[in-house]
Design a protein around this nucleic acid. Structure first.
Lengths: 226, 226
DNA sequence: TTGTCACCGACCGACCGTCGGTCGGTATGT
DNA sequence: ACATACCGACCGACGGTCGGTCGGTGACAA
C-alpha cells in the first residue's frame, strides 16, 4: 500500500473523524477495525500505533464529543440576567431545538445508536454527559433554591436524577423509532410521557406547576409528522 | 464424546441452568458457547439444536427469570387489606430485604452484572422487569389515587418512571461496588442518593413526605459494614 | 554550504487465537 | 422407517500482535 506519512495529531484526528462517522452510520459493534483502516487507508498495525484497542478509540471519540458540550452549556449557567427557571428551560430547549432542526440526521442517528449493538457506545456517552452536565444543572438548581423557586436538599443528586430521566426519555424515543412507528398514536403516547417527565421534574424540584419545559411541543409535532 | 440422550425439555433446562450460572459468575460476553457446552458435556451442534443463537439463549434465560417475579408481586398487589402506601413500601422492601439477606451472592452478582461486558444482559433484564412490574405498580398507584394518598395523572408512565429510578439506583450501587469501595464515605453518599430518590418518588406521586420507603436503612448498613 | 549518517516514529501486513455459527453425518428410541 | 438428539470438523470474521520497513530530521564532519 502507498505509504503516506502524516503528523501524529493529523492522523489521529482523521482516524477519530472516520471512525465516528462509521460508528454513527453502521454502529459500534458492526464497524470492524478493518472497516476503519480501509476507510482511512492505513494498515492494521498503524491503527494500534494510535489507539490501544477498539474500545480506547470509542472512549476518545466520546471524550472529544463531550468537550464541545461544555462550551454550549457554560454560558447559560454563568449568565447573570436569567433566573433559575429560565436557565433550566434554556438548557433543555437548546438541545430539543437542535434535535428538531437536524431531524433527519437525528432519526438516522437514533436508529443506529439505540440499537442493542450500540449499548456500550450509549452507556459511555450517557455516563460522560451526565458527569459533565450534572454539576452545571446543580448550579442552576442551587440558584433556584436561593431564589426560592425550587425547594431541593441535595442539588447535585437531584440534578443527576433529572438528567437520567431526560436520558430515559431519549431511550423511550429510541425504542419508538426502532420498533414502532412515527404515527399519531405513538406521538400522543410520547407526548404524554414527556408531560409526566416534565411534571416529575417540577415536583422533584419543588417548582411551580407549569413553570418548567423540558421539551418543545411544536418541535415534537414536526418530528412525528414531518 | 459419550453420547447421552435426554428428553428435549430436560436438556433445555439443563442448558439454561448451566448458562445462567456461567453468565452470573463470568459475565455474558466472557462466557463463550464453548464454555457452556463443555460444562454441560455436549457438542457445539447440539447447542444449536436448542437455541438459535447465543442471544436467543440469553433471551430465554431472562424470560424464565422474570416469570418467577410475577408470582412474588401479584399477591401484594391483589391484597385487599393493605392500603396503597403499604403496598408500595412492601414491594420495595421485599426486594431490598432479599438483597440484604443474600449479601455475598448479591455482591458477587453486582460485580459481574454491572460491568460493561454485561450491558446487553442488564439492558434486557431491566426492560423485561419494567414491563412486568410497571403494570402492577401502576395498579398500586391507581389505588393510592382513589385513596387520595397519591396525586397522579398518568399512573402507568409514572410507574415506569419510578421503576427506572429504582433501576438507576441499582446502577449507581453497581458503580460503587465496581469502581469504588464499600466504606463509610461511599455509604453516606449512597444513603443520600437513596433519600433523594425516595423523596423524588414521594413528590412525583404527590405522597406525604416520609410516607414512602424504597430502601431499608438497616439493610444498607449491613451491606456496607458487613 | 553540503554531504552523510544515526535515529525516531509513522507505517506495513502476515499472522494468531478465539469467537459465534454451520453442516453433513451418526446413534437411538419408537 | 422415521424422527430427533447428538456429534465434531469446519468456516469466516473479528480484535489484537509483532517483527520489520522506510521517510523525514537534526547533528556533525568535510
Amino acid at each position: 500500500m502507498a505509504r503516506i506519512i502524516k503528523e501524529h495529531q493529523e492522523r489521529r484526528q482523521e482516524l477519530l473523524d472516520v471512525a465516528q462517522e462509521l460508528f454513527y452510520r453502521k454502529g459500534y459493534d458492526s464497524t470492524s477495525i478493518t472497516d476503519v483502516i480501509e476507510a482511512v487507508g492505513i494498515a492494521k498495525g498503524t491503527f494500534y500505533h494510535y489507539f490501544k484497542s477498539k474500545e480506547d478509540l470509542l472512549d476518545q471519540i466520546i471524550e472529544r464529543q463531550t468537550q464541545g458540550m461544555d462550551q454550549t452549556i457554560s454560558p447559560i449557567v454563568q449568565d447573570t440576567d436569567m433566573n433559575a427557571t429560565q436557565k433550566f428551560n434554556m438548557l433543555h430547549s437548546e438541545i430539543a431545538h437542535y434535535k428538531a432542526v437536524n431531524r433527519d440526521v437525528m432519526l438516522l442517528l437514533t436508529r443506529v445508536l439505540y440499537a442493542d449493538a450500540n449499548l456500550l457506545f450509549m452507556e459511555k456517552m450517557m455516563k460522560h454527559r451526565i458527569l459533565t452536565v450534572a454539576p452545571k444543572l446543580a448550579e442552576i438548581i442551587s440558584q433556584g433554591v436561593e431564589e426560592s423557586v425550587f425547594d431541593v436538599e441535595f442539588t447535585y443528586y437531584t440534578a443527576e436524577l433529572i438528567l437520567r430521566m431526560w436520558a430515559s426519555l431519549g431511550k423511550d424515543f429510541g425504542q419508538i423509532v426502532l420498533y414502532e412507528e412515527l404515527n399519531n398514536y405513538t406521538k400522543e403516547r410520547y407526548i404524554q410521557k414527556c408531560r409526566v417527565y416534565e411534571n416529575a421534574a417540577e415536583r422533584m424540584l419543588g417548582a411551580e406547576e407549569g413553570s418548567l419545559h423540558m421539551f418543545d411541543r411544536e418541535a415534537l409535532e414536526v418530528f412525528f409528522e414531518g
